[in-house]
Simulated scan of single mutants.
Amino acid sequence: MPLKELAERRNMLHRKSDAQTIVKHALDDVQIGKVALVSSFGAEAVVLLHMVAQVGKATPVIFLDTEMLFPETLAYQREVSGLLGLTDVRIIGPDRNDVLTHDVDGLLHQADTDACCDLRKTRPLNRALGEFDGWITGRKRYQGGQRAQLPLYEKEDRKIKINPLANWSAQDVQDYMGAHDLPRHPLVADGYPSVGCMPCTTRANVLEDPRAGRWRNAEKTECGIHNRPRKEHAA
């Protein structure tokens, strides 16, 4: 079945399903194939990590260590993985030769944030997803920007992306964390409602959009995890 048709059928099938059902079916869907969860271990990531752990603790989880993350994120990744008993967390970093060629001084983000994301997120993820037919993301419509019309299932290149939390609100996320007594990312209490790489993330005040601290004062709104590799750099 063509992937676009498959995504459309799954959207119809799960139009009234809850997120837990979508996660379970995605991981068991023989028509989609092998599926991984891609997680930033950021401010809201623990929700999907918990749902996936309920289905199978050996589910592949891909975590991109850009080498520019907050130390708190790295510690949180270890804490949550251990707490949930996840046994196949794959920590993926940028290619060493790529870094030495394009960002040896670690300052690429100051000149071109998209190029930095391509180097440290998009390309490593593209390689890590090579063995998978689909992947689960934590994107939500309420986050706005390119996510405002997000479907539950979508075709992207030769894979299916599954967005089980697409129609969740910020309150839904908090309610789920509270109901399951899940640990919060430590930076949230310090004024970071959305957490990315250290050089490109600032605090956001309570009157701002939660993602206002990501790439502040820039037109960029989408994380490199959800971009396609630049043609000149594609693996």
Rank of each mutant, 00 (worst) to 15 (best):
C117M: 03
C117N: 06
R120I: 07
K121H: 04
R123K: 15
R123Y: 10
P124I: 00
L125D: 06
A128P: 02
L129C: 04
L129T: 00
G130S: 11
E131A: 14
D133N: 15
G134A: 09
G134S: 04
W135T: 00
I136S: 12
T137Q: 11
G138R: 03
R141F: 09
Y142F: 14
G144P: 12
G145Y: 00
G145H: 12
Q146D: 10
Q149R: 10
Q149G: 12
L152V: 11
Y153K: 03
E156T: 13
E156Q: 15
D157C: 10
R158Y: 07
K161F: 00
K161P: 01
K161G: 08
I162V: 14
I162D: 13
N163F: 05
N163P: 06
N163V: 02
P164R: 04
N167L: 09
N167T: 14
N167D: 15
W168S: 10
W168I: 13
D172W: 10
V173P: 01
V173L: 09
Q174P: 00
Y176K: 04
G178D: 13
A179I: 06
H180T: 13
P183Q: 03
P183E: 02
R184F: 11
P186H: 05
L187W: 10
V188S: 07
A189G: 15
A189V: 03
D190G: 02
D190Q: 15
Y192W: 10
Y192F: 15
Y192L: 14
V195W: 02
V195T: 09
V195D: 09
P199A: 03
C200W: 01
T202C: 06
R203C: 14
R203F: 01
